[in-house]
């Protein structure tokens, strides 16, 4: 990576941080205003709303400082290149995105398929995506998937009396 590319990447990172500060500021302002509606108490000086309001006020203050500090570091030209840098960043981390999407699907499928089936599909599927595929690794993947789905379910049920979701699919 050339020095110029590195600078663009650093500036894109600073813009992303700037946007995170703005999002934090907006959420804090909204929650500060929402805290106004928490009922007060006649028994104490500070009500239930005081501490959250104090925390959100502090976040607002620091987020404003962070925004000013961040704007100082971003050059005008960096904004134009931000979209491209984000796409480049996403392209480099495509595996993270795939992993998270598969993980999210797994979380949504646990109550439907049950822990064992959903976990088997998840562990085996994700290993398949991540691994160098050879007959040996495929065999290992199947065994590991069985151990961390049906095996884990049996372990928790038998030894710890913790019953993992059985799933609507099996319950009918």
């Amino acid at each position: 990576m050339s020095t110029s590319d590195e600078n663009h990447s650093l500036e894109a990172g600073e813009i992303a941080r700037f946007l995170s500060y703005v999002a934090i500021l907006a959420a804090s302002v909204a929650l500060y205003l929402s805290a106004e509606h928490i009922p007060s108490s006649r028994f104490e000086v500070l009500g239930a709303a005081a501490f959250p309001k104090f925390v959100f006020a502090a976040i607002i203050l620091i987020a404003i400082i962070a925004i000013i500090d961040s704007l100082r570091k971003i050059s005008r030209t960096a904004w134009g290149q931000f979209g491209g840098e984000v796409l480049n960043w996403l392209r480099l981390r495509y595996l993270v995105i795939i992993c998270f999407v598969v993980f999210a699907a797994y979380l949504l499928l646990v109550p439907i398929l049950g822990f064992s089936i959903a976990s088997f599909a998840f562990v085996f599927g994700l290993q398949l995506i991540l691994m160098p595929r050879t007959p040996l690794t495929l065999l290992i993947a199947v065994l590991v998937a069985l151990a961390f789905s049906f095996g884990l379910n049996a372990l928790f049920a038998e030894f710890f009396n913790v019953f993992l979701p059985r799933g609507d699919f099996l319950n009918g």
């Binding site: 998840f122 884990l152 928790f156 913790v162 993992l164």
Partner: peptide, 21 residues
Amino acid sequence: KWLIVPTVLTCCVVGSFALNN
């Protein structure tokens, strides 16, 4: 890592669920 990541993610799911069912 291809073996660690999916298995530990599953353990995280079990750990989170077992707390409050």
